[in-house]
Amino acid sequence: MSYYEMLGLKKEPFATGPDPAFFYRSSSHNAALQRLEIMLRLKRGLGLILGDVGIGKTTMSRALVQAFANDHDYIFHIILDPSYKSEFQFLSSLVKMFGIKPNSRSTLDYREEIERYLFKKGVDENKTVVLLIDEGQKLSASFLEILRIFLNYETNEYKLLQLIIVSQMELLPRIKKIKNFYDRIGLKYIINPLDEKETKEMIFFRLKTAGAEDPKKLFTDGAVNFIFGCSQGYPRKTSMLCHDALEFLVMNGKAIADESVVREVAARTVI
């Protein structure tokens, strides 16, 4: 029996994976999602979502993809890590991802094949192609230039490629120096940490989603307040502390995590 079942839960409430079912929509995350959806509906081209490590960018991205799951006019492609060794490898990966069967193998041929693909999907089939790139801070200047060229493909009314780059803050000063790329950004949004009220709501939301009948029976207000003080509203840090606190309850035969439990867990946890 897993620890969460011993606490009356049906699932792991504080896993660190990007499961959209456990995605808590803080005011900042919700604003980012709404603005991204508007950008995609209007086919504005380039959206940039920024935030610190552990702020919930990847989970928010999965929630966005899920929101369009039943809309077959949108074709989503996701790059989880753009750490390619060369322009050729980057383009080759895109060609494979788009399902293109190229007649030859060169960077120029790949670019032309991708251009034809975007026009076929966007004009002939009236589809919206979305390329979502996570860990955008890893994009090199040459890869950004390739993406800039793709953003030039358009009709008189809209861009043929909708590009969403999700990144840590370090990308921003870099792309500000690339004016012809920075000027193409149709949406730029920075995700902020949760406040104390939202942190409490996130903890209880995840517990309820995992099957808890009354989350207050697992964490006291004092415990939640202390968790916020430690995590400063960063979802990943919050989840790690909550997971360790629940694990502590099981290992020590306790029923509820109060402030003393969380203090003890936090003292030996590196977050």
Rank of each mutant, 00 (worst) to 15 (best):
D109V: 14
K237G: 02
H72K: 14
N70F: 13
F98S: 02
K217I: 08
E196P: 00
L48M: 12
I149M: 13
R35Y: 15
D221F: 10
A67W: 11
I227M: 13
V250L: 09
D183Q: 14
E264G: 04
I133F: 07
M39Q: 14
R268K: 15
T128M: 01
M6Y: 12
E196T: 01
A32F: 11
G17F: 13
E37D: 10
D52C: 01
L80M: 12
D71L: 07
M39T: 13
L171Y: 05
A255T: 15
G122S: 10
L132I: 13
R148A: 04
K43C: 08
D183H: 09
L108I: 15
N70M: 11
E154M: 01
K237C: 00
F98Y: 10
G253A: 06
K254C: 04
L9A: 02
V261S: 02
G56M: 09
S61N: 02
D214G: 06
R35Q: 14
D19Q: 11
P235V: 01
Y234M: 13
Y110K: 04
M6W: 08
I164F: 06
L241N: 03
E37V: 11
L94G: 02
F150I: 02
Y117G: 04
S26Q: 01
K96R: 14
D109L: 03
L241P: 05
K120I: 09
A212Y: 07
A210V: 07
R62W: 11
A210L: 06
V130R: 07
D195V: 08
G45M: 04
L163K: 03
T155K: 08
A267M: 12
I271W: 12
R174E: 12
G45S: 03
L91E: 05
A212F: 08
P102L: 06
E170T: 10
V53M: 08
S239W: 05
E112S: 11
Y24K: 05
A67K: 14
I38W: 13
N156C: 00
M251Y: 13
I185P: 02
E201W: 00
E112D: 11
L241S: 03
D214P: 00
N252W: 09
V261Q: 03
E201Q: 12
D134Q: 04
L46P: 06
